[in-house]
Amino acid sequence: MPRLAAALRGLAVAAAALLTVTVVPSSASAGTQAGTAAGPSARPKEFVALRDVDPTVIQEMRYVTPHTFMGVPVDGYLRPNCLLTRDAARALHRAQLSFLKRGFSLKVYDCYRPQRAVDHFVRWAKDLGDQRMKGEFYPRVDKTRLFDDGYIAAKSGHSRGSTLDVTLVRLPAVPTRPYVPGEPLTPCYGPEAARFPDNSLDMGTGFDCFDTLAHTLDPRIHGKQRKNRLLLKNGLERAGFENLPEEWWHYTFKPETFPDTYFDFPVE
């Protein structure tokens, strides 16, 4: 344990040092872009790669892989790289420092999401014949209900750059095994041992689970699963993030750098 504690302190110090070098205050002109959409290649200077701000946060970027609710990689994800507005990345760094001291690390599944990715979700949701991943991600939801029930929408806060999907991992972390396309699917809301394996704490459902059990404070979630959700929620709220009540993994840093702008540059 002394060695682990020393290693964690070293990671925190290194991340803090890196932050002072790579992070500068946000431009005051950011708000003037509200209501506009940037071109495909126009990545604003207010966006940063999370690993340049805090390399200790684990990144398991799902949408560049076929392990998605669509069963294919998502349009616009060219590299497994978490991009965020600088303000959101700095806040996540602060939260990470507090979790490292307790023997945990944050792990991100998704960060900035280009509009073309959201458009891909919409096209998939309208294709009622494509239900290859239903057995894992939405076993109890009819695909015709995805829009009405709020699981799919034409716009996403992720496209504004200050929203991310995140969980907690106990250190030392053991990597999650790769998904094998075509492997048998199990419900995302099943017991931890029956779900697709994930190195995160047991949150009661898997990531991107289209089910009411994924609601952060659903009363059916109790014991260690509720404790783990609240551990994540309380730590991120202290750093300035707000949770989406329908998804235990979904957090937005407030105030957003771009509260009304939906970007479409690729993740690379």
Rank of each mutant, 00 (worst) to 15 (best):
Gly76Leu: 01
Lys233Gly: 03
Glu242Gln: 14
Thr252Cys: 10
Arg43Gln: 11
Asp218Glu: 11
Met203Tyr: 03
Glu237Ile: 00
Ile221Met: 12
Arg123Tyr: 12
Ala37His: 07
Met70Lys: 08
Ala214His: 13
Gln33Tyr: 13
Thr257Ser: 13
Asp127Gln: 11
Met133Gln: 13
Lys224Tyr: 05
Leu97Lys: 04
Pro80Tyr: 02
Phe210Met: 15
Thr36Arg: 04
Met133Trp: 02
Gln225Gly: 07
Ala6Trp: 07
Phe241Gly: 08
Gly129Ile: 01
Tyr138Trp: 15
Gly135Ser: 10
Leu78Trp: 02
Leu128Lys: 04
Ser41Met: 09
Arg51Asp: 10
Pro172Arg: 10
Thr186Gly: 07
Arg116Leu: 04
Phe137Leu: 05
Phe99Cys: 02
Pro80Lys: 03
Phe253Ala: 13
Met61Glu: 01
Gln33Glu: 10
Tyr189Lys: 06
Val57Asp: 01
Pro55Lys: 04
Ala38Gly: 13
Asp211Glu: 14
Arg229Trp: 06
Cys209Pro: 13
Thr32Leu: 10
Asp75Thr: 02
Arg140Ile: 10
Val48Trp: 00
Gly31Arg: 11
Asp148Met: 08
Ala28Lys: 12
Leu244Ser: 15
Gly161Glu: 05
Lys143Ala: 10
Cys188Leu: 08
Ala239Phe: 03
Ala28Leu: 15
Tyr77His: 02
Pro25Ala: 09
Pro66Phe: 01
Arg62Tyr: 04
Phe258Ile: 11
Tyr63Arg: 00
Phe241Gln: 09
Thr212Lys: 13
Pro114Thr: 02
Arg9Val: 05
Asp52Val: 09
Phe147Tyr: 11
Cys209Met: 11
Phe121Val: 08
Gly135His: 08
Ala194Gly: 03
His215Ser: 10
Pro184Ile: 08
Gly240Lys: 08
